[in-house]
């Protein structure tokens, strides 16, 4: 699994950080998503998928996800 994020679409909700705090964070000044781990280990894939699903700005994309 490879994660990409669209900073321009990100609305700073932080839903991804709530679900997968090992993978996502937010910038202090404007809340935009910070990708901590673009290729997380398998045990975090479910949380990452949920983060991508609930992202209110549809700003998280997953490649190579089975």
């Amino acid at each position: 699994m490879k994660i990409t994020v669209e900073e321009e679409k990100c609305c700073g909700a932080g839903q991804c950080v709530l679900i997968a705090p090992e993978v996502f964070d937010q910038r202090e000044d404007d809340g935009i998503v910070v990708l901590l781990d673009a290729e997380p280990p398998a045990e975090r894939h479910d949380a990452v998928r949920e983060s991508a699903d609930v992202c209110p700005a549809a700003a998280i994309h997953l490649d190579g996800d089975e």
Partner: peptide, 13 residues
Amino acid sequence: LGWRMPKQARLHR
């Protein structure tokens, strides 16, 4: 409610 403070608002959630 966060006013230009997204991360801090999320933490208070």
